[in-house]
């Protein structure tokens, strides 16, 4: 089930072809993605922008393998995964995708260490190895002294750093960040964005949804969406 990380000839980590996602709301059908074509290269840093209802959340859900296309193709590392089973998609999320959310989404009853270890737990790592790895990740995000704390004992910025450490635990190629600074003040936002920037430098592919152009400035490329289609692409 593991996708080979080096077999992609085109250089695109993610490729969407005629991607359509249609929601049925009562009798109305709403196209959240309306035949979108897009490619995200390996190692790139994208900011996805657009007003609410523009389809950016749907795009993130589809890329994150949390949702399926109604029609069209989703190629992950050149492999069409549109028809994958729920278990196979779970496995892709586990091994290849790390999520960062606006509201951090840490599990409240678990300590910082256990939260970071969570993907390793599902990967079946043994206890000592995952504890070591979690400690390394925690010190990378500057939280090595907070391992035994629970999420509610941390500040917003600290919680988001735990979430980043968790997203990195399985060493995925792709980091999906959904408004990662939406609940943070400017100074903390800057720190988090600096952290994401350093991940980009280490070669991670990052796709980030934001509505703040100031935050979007941190990204290398910007993609503007409107009505389920790409409105504009800015590349640096």
């Amino acid at each position: 089930m593991t996708l080979d990380k080096a077999n992609d000839a085109s250089g695109s980590l993610i490729c969407l072809e005629h991607a359509k996602k249609i929601y049925t709301m009562g009798r109305q059908q709403v196209a959240a993605l309306d035949g979108m074509d897009a490619a995200f290269e390996k190692g790139s840093f994208w900011a996805v922008m657009g007003s609410s209802g523009s389809g950016k959340s749907t795009l993130m859900n589809v890329i994150g393998c949390l949702d399926r296309l109604t029609s069209g193709q989703y190629l992950f590392q050149g492999i069409n995964i549109s028809e994958y089973t729920d278990d196979a998609l779970s496995d892709i999320r586990l091994r290849h995708i790390g999520f960062i959310f606006q509201s951090f989404n840490l599990i409240p009853q678990l300590t910082v260490q256990r939260n970071i270890e969570l993907p390793l737990y599902y990967l079946g790592w043994d206890k000592e190895k995952s504890a070591d790895h979690a400690r390394n990740l925690a010190s990378m995000v500057g939280l090595e002294t907070r391992l035994t704390h629970r999420p509610f004992e941390l500040s917003g910025g600290q919680m988001q750093r735990v979430a980043i450490a968790r997203a990195l635990a399985a060493d995925p190629e792709l980091i999906l960040a959904d408004e990662p600074t939406g609940n943070l003040d400017t100074r903390t936002s800057d720190q988090i964005m600096a952290l994401l920037g350093s991940l980009h430098e280490k070669g991670k592919t990052i796709i980030m949804v934001t509505h703040e152009s100031y935050i979007a400035e941190f990204a290398q490329n910007r993609l503007y969406m409107k009505d389920g289609r790409i409105q504009k692409v800015e590349k640096r």
């Binding site: 994150g64 949390l66 729920d86 278990d87 779970s90 496995d91 892709i92 999320r93 586990l94 091994r95 995708i97 999520f99 989404n105 840490l106 599990i107 409240p108 969570l118 993907p119 599902y122 968790r166 399985a170």
Partner: peptide, 12 residues
């Protein structure tokens, strides 16, 4: 919590 675990990659 279930949503978080599923997003991280837990199977059903």
């Amino acid at each position: 919590e279930i949503g978080i675990r599923r997003a991280i990659g837990a199977k059903r």
